[in-house]
Simulated scan of single mutants.
Amino acid sequence: MSKIHWKGVFPAVTTKLKPDHTLDIEAIRAGLERLIANGVGGVVMMGMVGENAQLSPEEKMTVLRTAVETVKGRVPVVSGVGETSTERAVAYARAAEQAGVQGLMVFPGLTYKSDARETVAFYRTVAQASPLDILLYNNPRGYGVDLTPDIVEQLLVEPTIVALKEESYDTTRVTDLISRFGDRLNVVCGVDDLLLESAALGVTCWVSGMANALPRESVELLNLLISGDLAKARRLYRALTPLYHLDTVVKLVQHIKLAEHLITGSAETVKPPRLALAGEERERTIAITRQTLADLKALAA
């Protein structure tokens, strides 16, 4: 039985940093308060958008403890688990549980493209290490491992595996998973610019990157789709989609942090080897963000 209500927008939260690349705890707290005030259903810390792979183990735990202390149970706190070995993933899952999070978003083992047997063994071992809800992360483009429905069926013998973040960019998967597993598996949209399509097929939960920048509008969009107001949802989706497209590219973290900076004033600092956007690339994201804000204002008029 899932402990988390997998409904609503769960932003993959950016990790706010100071100019020297250390954690900005107060900015992290302020960002979480803003997301909660705008109606998100949960928060995902230490995903790829949170720069998981660039932070030290100590920094990751500090972020998790900060989130748990700030959120105070108002919404679920989920932690990404992105490690290079099963042993490290198990250790991290246990540490995250001790930090007080309610769920884990588990990446495939990083840097190695596991086959189906290895993938099942990895996820089952991590699931057995903790009683927390597990959100499987399916992103074959990014990590080379595809959690097909056949593989998912083998994983669902573990009762804590309760949800799957679908990021294969193949919306037929949504219907296949819902048809095959019904209420046993919560299918979660993991691609910002496929939200309308996924919701039309029955998805009611969304792990979003650009919701960091525009949480209220993202929550409104999902609510409109769930309520069936497609005409209004389409208009809002069209206004937001140019910005949402930036969630699907290699430099999504930089794009999201720059959009947040323009909208809220938060720092756009990223951990090297990432560098802040520059030149024409930066100007394009600024232009898209400003146009999106103008289009949203026109819709509200």
Rank of each mutant, 00 (worst) to 15 (best):
P57E: 03
R94S: 02
A67R: 06
H245F: 13
G82C: 09
E220F: 04
V249T: 13
R184Y: 12
T175F: 07
S85M: 12
K60C: 15
V75T: 06
L201E: 06
L35F: 02
L252C: 07
L224W: 00
V191T: 10
V106E: 08
G103V: 13
A300Q: 14
T269Q: 06
M210Q: 08
K16L: 13
Q128N: 10
E280F: 04
I36A: 09
L185S: 03
R290G: 02
A200D: 09
P140T: 11
H21L: 03
V68Y: 01
P272A: 13
G109V: 15
I263Y: 01
G103Q: 10
R141P: 02
I4L: 12
L236Y: 02
L64M: 11
L299H: 05
V75R: 02
Q291H: 11
E167R: 04
R282E: 11
M210N: 05
I151N: 01
L230P: 02
L164W: 02
E283P: 03
G182I: 06
R274Y: 14
V120H: 00
S79E: 12
V43I: 15
I4K: 10
A95Y: 10
V78W: 05
A200C: 13
G228S: 14
V270H: 02
A278L: 05
G209S: 12
A287K: 08
V145I: 14
D176C: 12
L132C: 07
M210S: 10
R117Y: 05
G279S: 01
K251R: 11
E283M: 08
K113L: 05
S227I: 09
T160N: 15
V145G: 03
T248V: 12
T70K: 05
D146C: 04
L104W: 04
V145F: 04
T15G: 04
P272I: 13
M61A: 07
H261F: 04
K232S: 15
D150L: 10
P149M: 01
A301F: 07
S179E: 15
A129Q: 04
